[in-house]
Amino acid sequence: MTRIHISEVGPRDGLQSISRVMPLEAKKAWIAAEAAAGVPEIEVGSFVPPSLLPQMADTAELVAFAKGIEGLAVAVLVPNFKGAERAVAAGSQKMSLPFSMSETHSLKNVRKDHVAVLGEIRAIAELVAAQPPSTRPHFEVGLATAFGCTIEGPVDEDNVVRLAAAAIEAGAAEVGLSDTTGYANPAQVKRLVRRVKAEVGADRLNTLHLHNTRGLGLANALAGLEEGITTLDASLGGLGGCPFAPGASGNIVTEDLIFMLEAMGCQTGVDLEKLLKVRGIITDALPGEPLYGFTPDAGLPLGFAQVTA
């Protein structure tokens, strides 16, 4: 039986993409409810300057709160070494640094070219290695715009493979492939996953971060699974997008992804009926904010039974 690890990124990727700021208590309720539904990992925020993303100003408080939830892996995004220092100080258990394969996007997103980002990766890896083993966070590099860029257009796959290897050489524990702009298609996903795994090792690429901009999110997820991907990022209600990638709309919908996986016979450990009720927290805290997903609208089919351990 295949076990797929779900990482909920809505509290970070979803909320950074909208102008309103969700109240701290509502964020806590969201995180607690998803954890209670069995979601094993939640990206609770990002350590970026509040002046740039005020939606993320309370990330340290959310890390402290989420760490109190038994069994939950607490993840954050860090844009640079300073962000990583804050993440380590807060006690984050997993850190992800976005490394855009499009250098133009990298300059827009984190204001650094490829050489500078690799320098940040080395510095963060040294910081992580200096922490006591018991509190050392897992350090992943997300290869953003790996499938295409709204600014540059096509991204050279040879460069993605080369930069993936460079990130590992610089000290990242693993890399993930991110379809930041919703450009990917299933054939491309299969090809690039296969190529990066061959370059860095099968155990160094486990995660896909996909967007549903053109309706191919679940198809791309399935393509990744067929190539050995075991972790999939998703966002409740499909919230999300990159503020520095014009036209990049939301992530794949957590509810739809889990329904697909469970219907296929994969195990997620997530109680889908409980998860569907979590949307109410978002609609109450952010009235009028568009949410997406077919499963929440249609409901679960008659006789649907989830996989149990």
Score class of each variant (00 low, 15 high):
S106P: 05
G38Y: 10
V200R: 03
L205S: 04
K108D: 03
E34K: 05
T180M: 06
L53N: 01
L272D: 01
I42V: 15
A37H: 00
W30R: 00
V200K: 02
E41T: 02
L222S: 02
L52C: 06
R20K: 03
M56D: 07
T207I: 15
A202L: 05
A33N: 00
A36M: 03
A87N: 07
G228C: 04
L53Y: 05
Y183V: 10
C242H: 05
M264Y: 06
K67Y: 12
K28D: 02
Q16F: 09
R204Y: 10
A66D: 08
N185F: 14
C149Y: 11
I6R: 02
V160L: 09
V21G: 00
D158M: 07
A57H: 11
G171A: 12
G182M: 11
A285S: 05
S17L: 07
G224N: 14
F304M: 07
T150N: 15
T230F: 07
K277D: 07
I229N: 08
A129H: 10
P137H: 13
A202W: 11
I258H: 01
T145H: 01
T181S: 11
E25V: 03
G201K: 12
A309I: 04
C242E: 04
N109F: 06
Q306W: 04
L107A: 06
A167L: 12
L118G: 08
T230N: 08
T283A: 08
P246T: 13
I42N: 02
A164E: 02
E227N: 09
T231M: 02
M260T: 04
R279I: 06
S249V: 15
Y292G: 09
P290Y: 10
V175H: 09
L232D: 03
T104L: 14
L210I: 12
N109H: 04
R136S: 12
L286I: 15
I281V: 15
T181Y: 02
K108V: 01
L261I: 10
T180Y: 07
D271N: 14
T254V: 02
A125P: 09
G293H: 07
E43P: 00
H5Q: 10
I121C: 15
V128Q: 02
D297R: 14
I121R: 13
P290H: 09
L208H: 03
Q267F: 14
F294A: 12
